[in-house]
Design a protein around this nucleic acid. Structure first.
Lengths: 242, 242
DNA sequence: CCGGGTTGTGACGAAATCGTAAATATTCCC
DNA sequence: GGGAATATTTACGATTTCGTCACAACCCGG
């Protein structure tokens, strides 16, 4: 059973979609305003859903922007809803990377069927062991730290830091979004998988090991900051007041 | 520009689709009978198209069967055309592995847009990711190691190293992308074929044999690095700090 | 049909990593 | 300042992953 985020400003339609999927046993979260949805998307304190359903025309921030934002660093499935066929053409042309597009009006059964198909496909995929599905693999380079996701190497001013798999994933995720807080639950979700039933303190231990290795190589700098009662954050050097 | 096979029994619609894509610069091949289409699909002397457009309801052999047949051994994109929404539900439920589904009646512009989106996505995929898919085989020459893919020979500072087929392929793939990690799953996929069901330990063994031969000839240098829990990586000599 | 070279497999010890718990330290808030 | 909540450190056992080896299956040329 999946968790689905629905962003749709027409109240009645939003309600219908939500209740449809809920009666299928899924859980839903509904937003009727693009700006609020964006906040939710950027909030690394709460877990990533299994699927997004985005309306194209939204108040304040439109569906296109949301879709782009998500695709910047995630491959979470997205279904786009468009009002007119002519609109659909444009959207498809932009190649946003959504997984499916539906033109209003549509039957709920169709939406249901398409969503099921996508979820099933994702489920299949995740079973297999495919080579690195990371969308963007950019080298991160800042204040003397170089993080290369392709070779999975980390260098601090010419000396190499050897990290374990988990340590690297953790660092890369944090450093990809400097200044953004990640809750332990979110980190467990994305790095350990949503089926992981372990302890949240596990994250602490890995953070600690990471901190030590960073400190050893890159003498005395606390890039990884603890947010009490919330989680962890990666700060660029000097971004905090002395 | 792509080659598209259209299977549609309504003559007028088939003509429209065909001419639409032809005027976009694509080439098309039209079948109005499932049986003939199947023959074409099974004919390995003719080139595989870049995309299929299949109608669900067809004489003699229906679109479902064609879709299944294609998916048995191909990942060529497929767009399914269905007559009714109710039909669509069923088809989606079957999870045939088609890439998109459209319900009649539809606008040609929508079909056009969806097909373009798929073709673009495929194009992206084949470019992205994937290590150097360059067919042109270049001699790799670095730090005293010379790897010649044409003669499939390897020399380490004037002494020749004789490798077996698999060993050579492995070395060549790794060395073509220095600094890049390859998971065992990926290596099995590319070097053994995606249908291979064997064990991942096999890769280890080949890596080991390769390492030994390299070490014998090219005295004490560990170019191939193990990344715990991830895979293997080829490093240029001296790319790792002492 | 024989034999050498190549390839895949299973087993096993060694090594690295990982998760947890318990002890200790820090921060928060009244 | 004091107590509760939260985080860090440490240590250790369990688990996972790796390297190696020997052997059997296979392929192919002679």
């Amino acid at each position: 059973m999946a968790h689905i985020i629905v962003v749709e400003d027409e109240q009645e339609l939003a309600r219908l979609i939500s209740s449809t999927f809920q009666s299928d046993g899924h859980t839903t979260e509904v937003f009727r305003d693009g700006r609020f949805a964006l906040d939710r998307i950027d909030d690394r304190t709460r877990p990533e859903p299994d699927l997004y359903i985005l309306d194209l025309g939204l108040p304040r921030v439109d569906g296109l922007a949301l879709c782009k934002r998500i695709r910047q660093d995630r491959i979470t499935p997205i279904v786009m809803l468009t009002a007119k066929t002519s609109e659909l053409d444009k959207v498809l042309g932009l190649e946003l990377g959504a997984d499916d597009y539906i033109t209003k009006p549509f039957s709920l059964r169709e939406l249901q069927a398409r969503v099921s198909a996508i979820l099933r496909r994702v489920e299949m995929m995740s079973r297999e062991n495919l080579p690195d599905t990371t969308i963007d693999s950019k080298v991160i380079e800042q204040d003397g730290l170089r993080i290369d996701p392709v070779g999975r190497e980390v260098h601090a001013q010419s000396t190499s830091i050897s990290l374990t798999a988990k340590e690297f994933d953790l660092l890369y995720l944090l450093a990809s979004n400097p200044g953004r807080v990640f809750s332990r639950a979110y980190l467990l979700d994305t790095l350990w998988g949503d089926t992981y039933g372990g302890f949240e303190r596990t994250v602490d231990t890995h953070i600690q090991r990471l901190r030590r290795k960073l400190a050893e190589a890159d003498n005395a700098d606390e890039r990884i900051v603890t947010l009490w009662g919330v989680g962890y954050r990666y700060d660029k050097r000097g971004s905090r007041p002395a």
